[in-house]
Amino acid sequence: METKMPMVLDVISENIIKHGSPLALKGSEVSSWAKELDLPAKGDVLFYTGGEYQMLPFIDSLVKTITHLDQGSKVFSMMMGARNILNKTGFSPEKMYASVLAKDKDRYNSVCFKAAKVLKELGYEFCYSGNEELYSGALLYELGYLQDMEDYVKRVVEVIKKSGAKTIVCLSPHAAEVFKFVYPKMVEGFDFEIRTYVDLVWERRDKLAKLQSAESVVIHDSCRLARELGIHQELRDILVSIGADVKEAPMNREWTSCCGGPIKILFPELSHVIGERRVTELKESGSAHILTSCPYCLSALEAGRAKGDSAVVEDLIEFLYRGVKA
C-alpha cells in the first residue's frame, strides 16, 4: 500500500537524493566559507560539514512557509517544490531563499570557517571535499527513508574515499551519529574513524586562548551528542580550561531536554514551544549565555528565544572562535 505523506518529507528526501542537500543548496553555496582557507582536497583527516550549518537559515525560511500555508493547498505544493519542481512550475526557489536575511546567512555560513580556524589554531591539519561534499543523509535515516539511504550513502562514501582520509571530523553530531552507527551497517568496509569537532578541541584544550574575564555560560547538551555519542563532560572540560564559569541547567548531560528541532519541519509551532521551554530551563542555571554544539539545537534555541530576550545562543564553535581572533 502506498502512502501519501506531507509534502515537506517528499521534498527533503528527494532533495537529498538528487542534490546531496536537504534543501538542494548547491555545492558552491555550501563550500563558499572555505574560499580563503585553501584547504587541500586530500589528507589523513577529513573536515566534514555536511552543509548542515550552512542550511540553517534556509530551514527557517522553509518552516515559515509551512507555518503560514495550509499544507494541502496548491500554493503550498508549489512553494514546497523548491528546486524539485522548478521545471514543472517555473517557480524559483531563489525567491523563497531570497527572503533569508543576509546576516543570518553570513552567520551560519561562517560557523564552518570558524570551526576550521579553531582547529588550525590548535595545530590540526585536515582536508575538505569542497564543492563535492555531500550531506550525510542523516535526515533520510531520521525520517524513515532507509532504503533510499542505502543507495545514497554509496555516493557519499565515494566522495569521502577520494580524500584518502582515515578519520572524519564531523561538525554536526547527527552526521557523526550516522557515520558511526548507520553507515557501517550499509556500506561494507566503512571503517573510518569518526570523531567530532568537540573531541578534537577537547584533546588540545590546553592550547586554547584563555578568556579575558570569567564569563558565565550554560551548556545545552545536544541529545545526539550527550546520549548517543556520550559526549558531555568534554564540553565542560573545554570551557573550564579556558576559564569560563560553567553553570548547569536543571536537566543536563544524558538527561538533557531536547531543543524541539527534530520535529521542526513537520510540527513547527510545537517545535517552537519546546525550544522556548528549553531556553527558559537553561536560563534557570543563572546564566543567559547558552552554548550548544549542534546545528539544529543552535537554530531551534535561537528560534525559541523570546523576542527581546536577553539570552544569547551560540554554538561552541562561535564562542571559541572569539578567542582565536583575540
Binding site: 500500500m1 502506498e2 502512502t3 501519501k4 505523506m5 506531507p6 509551532e269 510545537l270 514551544v273
Partner: peptide, 21 residues
C-alpha cells in the same frame, strides 16, 4: 491503493498546537 495521510498530519498538528496553548 494509496493512503493519503496529509490531512491527518494537518489535523493532528492542529490538535497538538491547541493542546500546547
Amino acid at each position: 491503493m494509496t493512503v493519503d495521510l496529509r490531512k491527518d498530519f494537518v489535523n493532528y498538528a492542529k490538535s497538538l498546537n491547541a493542546a500546547s496553548e
